[in-house]
């Protein structure tokens, strides 16, 4: 029997990695199978042709023992190489560490962008304060036809307040328009606040608070009161005329 003399552990080449060692040991095991088949055929023929069968039998027994040892050795070698090939936690841990690092960097970038966004809208004591007169008002739906659109939420209110800034001196009530960094869609327009009596310069009621869509009815209730007063006066005048006619 030709025993394979070269084993993977005796290979002096350092560049052989685990995969190549496993392939080599597997190829040696395959070659051993053909050698064992050839040796079995030879022993059978020698036993049939030999006159001293005891000698052939003993030599065959010794060969079988050595073949078993060799096969077990090769199998152990293949299994060990395969184990080393599969159980390679270093590469997996390194890959997982790299991916964790990438994910951490992405989270850091996300937090940084959130910080940048929050810095624009965060309250600061150094911010200037604005007179409530210059806070925004909701525009009536009737005025939409003129091109003005109502403001929808508190962010729009903030934009309007920042556009009309009241200066420190109470006498100067001229609105000064500032450039704001807050995003504003082009479909919104704000009516400027003028000096003198107007709807927007009307003093606010006691129920001052966040403006919603439901509030315009309350805010413009004085117009309805004026109309009611006029109608009441006209009805009184008509009733006075009727009484005077009856008296005549």
């Amino acid at each position: 029997m030709q025993e394979s003399e070269s084993s993977p552990h005796e290979d002096p080449k350092p560049e052989f990695d685990e995969a190549s060692r496993f392939e080599k040991s597997l190829q040696e095991l395959r070659d051993l199978r053909s050698q064992l088949n050839y040796a079995a055929d030879y022993c059978e023929v020698a036993f049939l042709k030999a006159e001293k069968k005891n000698m052939v039998l003993e030599s065959t027994k010794e060969y079988i023992c050595k073949a078993m040892i060799t096969v077990i050795d090769h199998l152990g070698n293949v299994s060990a190489n395969l184990e080393c090939l599969i159980d390679s936690p270093d590469e997996f841990s390194q890959t997982e560490l790299r991916m964790d690092g990438l994910q951490q960097r992405l989270l850091t970038c996300r937090e940084y962008t959130c910080e940048l966004d929050l810095a624009q809208v965060r309250w600061n004591s150094a911010f200037s304060r604005y007179h409530p007169r210059y806070s925004s008002k909701l525009i009536q739906p009737a005025e939409r036809s003129n091109g003005a659109m109502p403001m929808r939420d508190s962010s729009d209110l903030f934009v309007a307040e920042s556009m009309y800034q009241c200066k420190d001196s109470p006498n100067e009530k001229v609105p000064c328009i500032k450039k704001t960094t807050t995003h504003l869609t082009p479909e919104f327009e704000f009516s400027p606040v003028f000096n003198g009596p107007s709807i927007l310069s009307k003093p606010r009621s006691s129920s001052f608070g966040p403006q919603t869509k439901d509030s315009p009815r309350l805010r413009f209730s004085y117009l309805i009161d004026d109309r009611n007063k006029k109608s009441v006066q006209s009805s009184n005048f008509i009733s006075f005329l009727r009484r005077s006619k009856r008296a005549k």
Partner: peptide, 17 residues
């Protein structure tokens, strides 16, 4: 997933946050 996140962030930084 990381590739998609990185590509999205590099393509449009506004969508990243």
């Amino acid at each position: 997933l990381l590739e998609v996140q990185v590509s999205t962030a590099s393509a449009n930084p506004a969508l990243f946050s």
